[in-house]
Design a protein around this nucleic acid. Structure first.
Lengths: 227, 227
DNA sequence: CGCCCTATTGAGATTCATCAACTGCGGTGG
DNA sequence: CCACCGCAGTTGATGAATCTCAATAGGGCG
């Protein structure tokens, strides 16, 4: 699997969609080099000095933190087209790991810094990207702080669908495990599993297998997501 | 109260501390104008077009979101010296409200935009600021998703002390109500109150009144915060 | 002086976590 | 080729942490 590095890359991203923030980074593109990252390998770890910026070409990545006693919180998932650690200098505040085998493009930070310093356009895009991330973090705080388990799952499915979607079909691919979903939503695996089962029983979704969800009743799902 | 607009402003901030990110915004300073904001009045609301950037001169501000049915999540609190909505264009992703009577300095966004476009230095500072906020949002996700009620309160107290402190004294002023704290930590008022009482009973803190906390046993507090 | 809002404390209810058992699939090696 | 192992996922029973409901106290402001 995974021979499609050049041509297939855009497939999983927002292919034909409206232009995204990422389009403003054209001057940076030639500085990047692609590499492969095996499942469960870290792109970087919390506390590491940040030496590169990254773009997911294929696969999926999770961004997480750990407590001293091993509890994990996944801040976000990233899919092809997404930019990670697109900032200047500093220390990584999270660990980034491959959920599945990935192709990642990597850009040396010093060169990014130089270009950002010369091109207000690029600097502006980086700022816009950071704000986007911040807004999504704020939404996730609402999910974690104030929503019930069912609302969290429904919200998650709606958000994932909105992101990975754009291609037709209510068919949603979830590359992450139930444990990853639990650690993203502040729940246990068992609770996640139970709620998937309930949504299935209630004909809101179908679950052909653990990594695929078909949304059968979009309204029901959005209702249960609250918002 | 609150005549000290010019001289007393720095008192609550990181006064004599290491230079902060905010120092890089000198070129923007003359563009600002101060105004007063009464308790519970909004600086801006979620969904509003962002027309200004703000700096807290005196007082305290909360940043929050609401669900359709009125549940509230407070993403962060801001104190004198803090910059709010220091980004470019777009729509406010949260509501900002005064916790107590405030003095706020406001900078027109179009002018900020122009300066950011001309000065890579300023643009860079804005980016650094956004990253800081993002890192703190990620920490808060960990708190909300994976920590117990006691850990949340302890973490909150440690963080507030680290922020507002720098002056001597384990004396911590909390301008926000218990409800605000609850909505920040994903708890109910009752739980917040109970845990304050427990920490007091266990001689970890003293609570002379609802808006002041004395940290009696710093180690105990940090232990209970986990991390 | 009295009212309203914040805070505290108690008792009971509920959600979700924990513990445990079982299934199914993929890989590995006899 | 098939048996076995290990991990992900599911489901059930039980329990604990936190919420909800309720009552009371205290402080600031009109």
């Amino acid at each position: 699997m995974l021979q499609m590095v050049g041509s297939g890359a855009a497939k999983g991203a927002v292919a034909g969609m409206a232009p995204t923030i990422e389009d403003g980074f054209a001057p940076i593109e030639p500085l990047g080099t692609n590499f492969r990252l095996d499942r469960d390998r870290a792109l970087f770890r919390e506390g590491d000095k940040a030496a590169f910026c990254y773009k997911i070409i294929a696969g999926a990545v999770r961004i997480s933190k750990l407590t001293a006693d091993g509890r994990r919180q996944i801040a976000d998932f990233f899919l092809p087209g997404d930019l990670i650690s697109f900032d200047l200098g500093g220390i990584h505040s999270c660990t980034a790991e491959a959920i599945v085998e990935c192709v990642v493009r990597r850009y040396p930070k010093p060169q990014i810094e130089r270009i950002a310093a010369e091109s207000p356009r690029v600097a502006r895009h980086m700022l816009a990207l950071a704000q986007d991330r911040l807004a999504s973090a704020q939404t996730q705080m609402m999910v974690l702080g104030r929503k019930t388990a069912t609302e969290r799952i429904a919200t998650f499915l709606v958000a994932q669908a909105a992101r990975a979607d754009a291609r037709g079909g209510r068919n949603l691919r979830l590359p992450m495990t139930r444990i990853d979903i639990a650690d993203h939503l502040g729940l246990t695996v068992e609770t996640v599993s139970r709620i998937f089962s309930r949504l299935k029983r209630d004909r809101v979704i179908d679950v052909p297998d653990a990594h695929n969800v078909v949304i059968r009743d979009w309204n029901q799902l959005e209702d249960r997501a609250d918002m």
